[in-house]
Design a protein around this nucleic acid. Structure first.
Lengths: 93, 93, 93, 93
DNA sequence: CAAGAATTATGAACCC
DNA sequence: GGGTTCATAATTCTTG
């Protein structure tokens, strides 16, 4: 284990090495922050493409809807569709 | 029971009354939609109060934090505070 | 205005009545909490209906999908549909 | 420009090449989907690290709070803290 | 107790 | 630039 709410470290031999948990924490934080940076960069790239699409005359909102549709559709072909259709018919939809 | 994935209704005497499940479904849907409407109205009311607070000079973000704080158990608040401080110190913050 | 980050109240005659902002804050908080309680109660009612539906043999997930569909569809009939269809056809979808 | 709501393409010489806009659209969609895939992978990696932290005995919620804290400007943290304390005192908390 | 879904909150983006 | 809507992130709750 690591640092708990008492600030005590109960892990086997980590008791002698109080800084081990701190090092572990620092490592975790750095890895997370590094990945979040990359993710933020990707988000920026995506935003840029949407901006490019807009300046090329495409409707960004419809484009987003298109992307979302392509993401969803394979999932919707799944098992639930049958029941949903059944319920829709039961309500005359 | 009601409509299952085969579209067949296995309930005792509902077999003779295929529309019973449909009526039941319609009733459920209507009750849910009615309640969701009310809930949406309440959400609008809450939003209005935050807007009123803002125009009265209060900081909405801090106000939200205050409301959230009052929802939590004092013990839970203390626990999280303690851990956060511990982690901050471990990183020398 | 009300309480600001200095804790000073700069509003006209509220300077004499330092508690006015506090009363105003208390009132806002109480109204918000009251409405949130009602909203929570409604959420509970809705949950109960889903439980009732489940025990009546309906598939809750499909039922949720149905409700969501009835909420969305009128909005999707709007103007964006045309563009979306156009884009879909452009991609051969 | 590209496809507009009439499905007509008014761009200069693109009239002769009706498929140019479609190709452009396809390219945009593919680039976006590619980047979103990468972003999703990163999100998964981050989730994995939090899981690793949890199994190492760290409190995930506090860890998230720590990461969020490090993202904010010290001045912003101070500002929000001050306001929250002010509001708490106003309510006698 | 872990995993997945659903609701809620926060932050960004677009329009006015 | 401010407000509103949309998208994403996170917490909570339910279910297996």
């Amino acid at each position: 284990m690591a640092l708990d709410s008492t600030g005590r470290d109960h892990t086997e031999d980590n008791a002698q090495h109080g800084n081990i948990a701190a090092d572990r924490l620092r490592s975790l934080v750095e890895r997370i922050e590094r990945l979040e940076e990359e993710r933020k960069a990707l988000a920026g790239d995506i935003k840029d493409i949407y901006a490019e699409a807009k300046s090329a005359g495409f409707d960004v909102k419809a484009l987003r809807a298109l992307i979302a549709l392509r993401k969803k559709e394979p999932a919707e072909i799944e098992e639930q569709e049958t029941l949903l259709d059944l319920y829709k018919r039961a309500l005359g939809m």
